[in-house]
Amino acid sequence: MRYLTTLLSCLLSLFGCQDKVTSTSITRISEQGIDQLFSRTSVRAESASFDCVRSASGRCYYQVFKETCDGQQRCERGMLQAFDIRAGHTQKREGLPQGFRTCVSSSASVPCQ
């Protein structure tokens, strides 16, 4: 009976759900102990969830881009999307290309690096 249970467990695990890999990055900028920017971005396959936790300006300014580099380590950024989110809110973006990157700033006039 124990062998049957083990065999069934192995077979059932083959049909189990496997969640896609998620990468989460946290950007936190503080000045004199006070958060100027606190943002969390979770990337999964071709979508991303942008969470503007706190921002001194009241908004987080995001850029989504695709970076291409030549053989001599010169890279160019191709802007895909630029948007802002009010502090305390989250926004999900779908249909992003494979290998996209993101950056965030607390000001529209200060570009992401």
Rank of each mutant, 00 (worst) to 15 (best):
M1H: 14
R2F: 14
L4H: 13
L4R: 14
T5M: 11
T5G: 10
T6N: 14
L7R: 11
L8N: 11
L8M: 15
L8Q: 13
S9K: 00
C10M: 14
C10W: 06
L11Y: 07
L11A: 13
S13R: 04
S13V: 05
S13L: 12
L14R: 04
L14H: 10
L14I: 12
F15G: 05
F15C: 11
F15K: 08
G16R: 03
Q18T: 06
D19H: 00
K20A: 10
T22L: 00
S23A: 06
T24C: 11
S25E: 06
S25P: 00
S25C: 00
R28Q: 12
R28H: 12
S30R: 03
Q32N: 09
D35H: 08
F38N: 15
F38M: 06
S39I: 06
R40I: 15
R40Y: 01
R40F: 01
R44N: 08
A45E: 05
A45W: 02
S49C: 03
S49T: 12
S49E: 06
F50T: 02
R54A: 06
S55W: 01
S55N: 11
A56S: 13
A56T: 06
A56M: 08
S57E: 04
S57K: 08
G58Y: 04
C60T: 05
Y61F: 15
Y62M: 08
V64W: 03
V64S: 09
F65P: 13
F65C: 08
F65K: 07
K66H: 07
E67S: 02
E67L: 04
T68M: 02
T68S: 11
T68K: 07
T68C: 00
C69K: 08
D70Y: 11
D70H: 08
D70V: 03
G71V: 02
G71I: 04
Q72H: 09
Q73R: 14
R74Q: 14
R74D: 07
R74E: 10
C75T: 03
E76V: 06
R77P: 12
R77D: 12
R77Y: 05
M79V: 05
L80W: 03
L80P: 09
Q81N: 12
Q81Y: 03
F83C: 09
F83E: 07
D84E: 15
D84Y: 12
D84M: 13
G88F: 01
G88Q: 00
H89A: 06
H89G: 03
K92L: 05
R93L: 14
E94D: 10
G95D: 13
L96I: 06
L96Q: 05
P97K: 00
Q98T: 10
F100I: 00
F100L: 04
R101L: 08
C103N: 07
V104C: 00
S107D: 09
A108V: 07
S109A: 14
S109L: 10
P111V: 01
P111S: 07
P111F: 01
C112H: 10
C112W: 08
C112K: 11
Q113L: 08
Q113I: 00
